[in-house]
Design a protein around this nucleic acid. Structure first.
Lengths: 224, 224
DNA sequence: CCGACAGGAATGTTCAACAATTCAACAATC
DNA sequence: GATTGTTGAATTGTTGAACATTCCTGTCGG
């Protein structure tokens, strides 16, 4: 990590950002993920500052944070809007996923990191049995996050978490299309098995095939 | 790209961010890239706001932008500092490069995008003949940027440009180690040739080997 | 029907103030 | 003498208000 302080031993626990703006950003991030704020919704500075009890400047800082994550889009002199992805964005996002996830899988991982992947697979199975489609979705996100985490790169983890957050922007529409997560449970299990067997190339191949199908599915849903 | 405005035809040329804060961020980004602001330097809000003739709030917005690019680090109640990379960051950055660049190379590119790669190679040769080590460095950056551009993904391009900006943070120290760019000119040419011949896997293999050596080199220089 | 124009609303930017935190210097204690 | 309070200056965090600028709308006139 990038540090600067020559004096060692000081607490590194706290997150390196202003507290209030971060909380505001987190709140908005949550509402976007939950679908409470739909894509295209305009976020007015003054209304939000009143509603959350913070100043306009603080709301502004939160906007800057979310904009850097592509969760909101800033239009000069017009305001910020919850990002709404076009079909071309789908391909773009999957290009990032192909690059990052496949690279991590090809590099393999430690026993612990592979165990985390397995845990995400099992989490998905339990959610499926419970008929919890919300839980299925987040288990799937955990699975792919765990894949990337195998690489042990903080930067890749951050990129992946942002990509997953972006994907939630069009998951709401897609999940209406019915239990399509079910089909992916078997895929995840197969990928995980290949990793556990140490056959990273096979895992990568299966992952690529999964990503291709997933992208196709998302594109089809959003072509309407 | 994520858009929202239903009304078509309006100018999409301008960058979707406040103008002044962006200019301040660009100025600081430039000074960091040029080495005028060395890693670890503290950036004081008030001093900068006076010097640049903008308000503290605007400086603050610029800081948020640079922090999201990891060019500066924010320490709560202490201020922002020009990021200084540790040895562990080197490996982390190269993990991102391996993922993104290799993926782009494996996917190949259009004739135009490969021509851009070739152009960067030639740019490097000219700089080498002119003894312009500064130009050699930026040609090398153009080369790797062109590799990623083959994928045609806006997100990957943004990630790559940020990674290249981060690398300049430790290039200043590394370039002292003498004309080590020279060795990479041949590598770049070989990678480009493989691409032109349509042998993407060979190009990817050569790129991986290059990245491994480059990481080793950087690590050695910074181990001191 | 349409272009021009005035008015309103929202954002962009600045300024000034205060609270909270950090840091360095110094005093106090063991 | 070294560690531990304590104090005070300096800097950041946050707020609130003000003004400029831009966009949007709806009306008026041709």
């Amino acid at each position: 990590m990038a540090t600067v302080n020559p004096s060692p031993g000081v607490s590194r626990l706290r997150v390196a950002v202003p507290a209030v703006a971060t909380r505001v950003a987190s709140e908005l991030r949550l509402q976007i993920a939950e679908g409470a704020l739909l894509p295209g919704t305009k976020l007015k500075e003054e209304a939000l500052s009143e509603e959350l009890g913070v100043s306009r400047n603080t709301v502004r800082e939160a906007f800057a944070e979310l904009a850097s994550e592509r969760l909101v889009v800033r239009q000069p002199n017009r305001g910020v809007f919850v990002a709404s992805l076009e079909v071309s964005d789908i391909h773009d996002v999957y290009a990032v996923r192909r690059a990052i996830e496949v690279s991590a899988v090809r590099g393999g991982g430690s026993a612990e990191s592979i165990a985390a992947v397995r845990a995400a697979v099992e989490e998905g199975k339990r959610a499926a049995e419970a008929g919890d489609s919300e839980g299925l979705g987040s288990a799937n996100a955990h699975f792919h996050g765990a894949l990337v985490a195998m690489a042990g790169s903080e930067r890749l983890n951050v990129i992946m978490s942002q990509v997953l957050a972006e994907m939630r922007l069009f998951f709401h529409k897609a999940s209406i299309a019915g239990g399509f997560y079910q089909d992916y449970l078997a895929d995840n299990d197969q990928i995980c098995r290949a990793l556990e067997a140490g056959d990273n190339d096979l895992a990568a191949e299966r992952l690529l095939s999964y990503l291709a199908r997933s992208e196709e599915h998302q594109t089809a849903v959003h072509a309407s």
